[in-house]
């Protein structure tokens, strides 16, 4: 049931560009001026905590929701005023949005029928999607007779047969269990690579974003906090929020005596040394490959990710050390990065 190794792309993606997109419901602002560009054929993740406007943003790109201001371009064409069906986008919804009264096969070709694609062509596309997703045994079933993972595949199938240059996904894995989630993550990525489509993928899970994206757009309160490749987002978070949102566990942020800025150190950059900041152990969580040590650093909790197994009783005094060049500094008031 796994997707074959990436072949040369069969379709080509289209670039997506948002220019100063705004959306408000009455006085409640969901998006306060969002601009970004996703290059054709790349995998872009919209990341952010719940309620930050990810879904709203995606729905505006799809045309399911109308922006109160700004412009959407797909493949260089201004689509702001176009209805969803004419924008060249396919979408996988969070609930999968499968039609319960139709069989799997009918669900997959629903859109092709609505667009009056000839039956022979429908059959060809269905066959291809079924082969890619390995769901030939399910075609005659109803969505209600499928497991979550199978429903997910059918939803992907519907997006594949559309052969649209842009695919939108809204938290497609949030209803799956952890193991299946990891598998589907790889499959979706392989699918995007194989089809060569542009992917705009919404999630609140930063590990998903880090693992899949070519480009991560971190949203917070309807604004873009940072727009960068995963490695850059991790290495040089642009704001305090970006620093605290990315990484498992996230970056330690604390104040040091004699420093006006907030300083940040990734838990994996922390080590126990003979010199350093004096702290006391609160708890040691052994994870197999490493141990997460939480320490009390002058009233602030600080995490250290240490290799192997570290056995330390609560209350043990330790010295937390790190290299100066792993230190991140953020403005205490605005939260922006100080370089």
């Amino acid at each position: 049931m796994s997707i074959q190794h990436p072949l040369s792309p069969i379709q080509t993606g289209a670039a997506v560009r948002l220019v100063d997109i705004r959306r408000a419901w009455g006085s409640a602002v969901a998006l306060g001026g969002v601009s970004f560009t996703v290059a054709a054929g790349t995998f872009c993740v919209l990341l952010g905590p719940s309620g930050c406007g990810k879904t709203t943003c995606l729905r505006i790109v799809a045309g399911l929701d109308q922006a109160t201001g700004g412009r959407v371009e797909i493949g260089g064409r201004d689509v702001t005023a176009l209805p969803p069906a004419e924008r060249g986008v396919a979408m996988v919804f969070q609930s999968y949005a499968l039609f319960p009264h139709l069989s799997v096969a009918e669900n997959i070709v629903f859109g092709l029928k609505a667009r009056s694609v000839p039956a022979a062509e429908r059959g060809r596309r269905l066959e291809r999607a079924v082969e890619i997703l390995g769901i030939s045994a399910l075609l005659q079933r109803r969505p209600g007779q499928l497991s979550g993972g199978q429903q997910q595949r059918v939803a992907l199938g519907r997006a594949i047969v559309a052969e649209a240059p842009v695919c939108l996904m809204d938290e497609p894995l949030s209803n799956l269990d952890a193991q299946l989630r990891a598998d589907m993550r790889r499959e979706i990525l392989a699918l995007q690579r194989r089809l060569g489509i542009t992917m705009l993928y919404v999630t609140h899970d930063q590990t998903e974003a880090m693992g899949m994206a070519d480009q991560v757009i971190l949203l917070r309160g309807g604004r873009i906090e940072q727009d960068a490749a995963p490695a850059d987002l991790y290495a040089t978070p642009a704001t305090r929020f970006a620093a605290s949102f990315v990484g498992t566990p996230p970056m330690n942020l604390f104040s040091l005596p004699g420093e006006t800025a907030v300083v940040g150190v990734r838990p994996e950059d922390m080590r126990l040394g003979d010199a350093g900041l004096p702290a006391s152990v609160i708890h040691a969580e052994y994870l197999g490959a490493d141990t997460i040590l939480s320490c009390d650093l002058a009233g602030q909790t600080c995490l250290a990710r240490l290799p192997g197994r570290v056995r330390l009783e609560a209350g043990t005094p330790v010295l937390l050390d790190f290299d100066r060049n792993t230190l991140h500094r953020f403005d205490a008031d605005t939260g922006t990065r100080l370089s």
Binding site: R59, A62, G63, L64, P83, P84, A85, V89, A90, M91, F93, Q94, S95, A97, F99, P100, H101, F110, G111, A114, R115, R158, A162
Partner: peptide, 29 residues
Amino acid sequence: VPQELDDAARLEGSSLLGRLWRVYVPLAR
């Protein structure tokens, strides 16, 4: 009827009457 079903049908190119006939009416059987 979940809004997402309506949205999916709209995105797939169904007209207003198409959605009424192919999504709402069958679900209301």
